[in-house]
């Protein structure tokens, strides 16, 4: 009984230490507390391991950030889980963004632009600077059409999505999951639109 009580007390002390270590790594300690805790770190292995554990927890939470979201509504951070057979089984990268679906739309947009560029390029084996200049307008028109479609519907044409290898049947505002043979990779870009996407849509 007493042994069990001591064990519980020890466990609670460990949790107290974790709380302190958490406040340490999140920079919440006062100057006095900080000095005292770092003096403790110099001597106390349990405190050092507690700091290590809190960083582990922070890493786990950061990597799990997407799946911690409750079912989301339009415009909120979400998750896109895409199959990538070329990756190792345990490799996971997490991408979060507004609804996740927009990432797929962006991929479609850039694949479409790339395809147009390729088609224009394949007309001749060599291309003079003047010819390159001549392809700018159709390319720009194509991109503008795609961007207009994106801005109007928050989506891209099915053809563009299919070119990007995306499942066109998925609801953009649900937790988009692309099933397929291979390994699961979750992508997390921290809830913000990447600068290149902002630039592309600002045109």
């Amino acid at each position: 009984m007493s042994h069990e009580h001591n064990g519980n007390a020890q466990f609670e002390q460990g949790v107290d230490l974790d709380v302190l270590a958490l406040r340490y790594v999140t920079n919440e300690l006062t100057e006095d507390e900080l000095g005292a805790f770092e003096a403790r770190l110099a001597e106390d292995q349990l405190a050092r391991e507690s700091v290590s554990r809190m960083v582990l927890l922070g890493t786990a939470v950061s990597l799990e950030g997407v799946s911690l979201e409750a079912p989301f509504a339009e415009g909120e951070p979400g998750e896109l889980v895409a199959s990538t057979p070329q990756h190792a089984a345990d490799s996971t990268v997490t991408f979060t963004w507004f609804g996740g679906w927009h990432l797929a739309a962006a991929a479609g947009l850039f694949v479409a632009i790339g395809l147009v560029a390729y088609l224009n390029r394949s007309d001749a084996e060599t291309t003079s600077p003047g010819e390159i200049a001549g392809t700018e307008q159709p390319l720009e028109d194509e991109a503008q059409d795609l961007i207009a479609s994106y801005l109007a519907f928050g989506d891209l044409p099915d053809a563009a999505r299919e070119e990007a290898g995306l499942d066109t049947s998925l609801d953009p505002f649900e937790n988009s999951t692309l099933e397929g043979a291979g390994d699961e990779v979750t992508l997390d870009i921290g809830g913000e639109a990447p600068p290149w996407m902002v630039m592309a849509l600002a045109k």
Binding site: L22, T26, L56, L57, G58, T59, A60, V61, S62, L63, E64, G65, S67, L68, A70, D90
Partner: peptide, 27 residues
Amino acid sequence: NETLDQARDAVRELPIEQQEVLRMRFT
């Protein structure tokens, strides 16, 4: 990686309201 996977599993198993607090605090 096993250690990190364990931690991620442990986070997933927490009640959602506790996960929320962790996420808001850390991320």
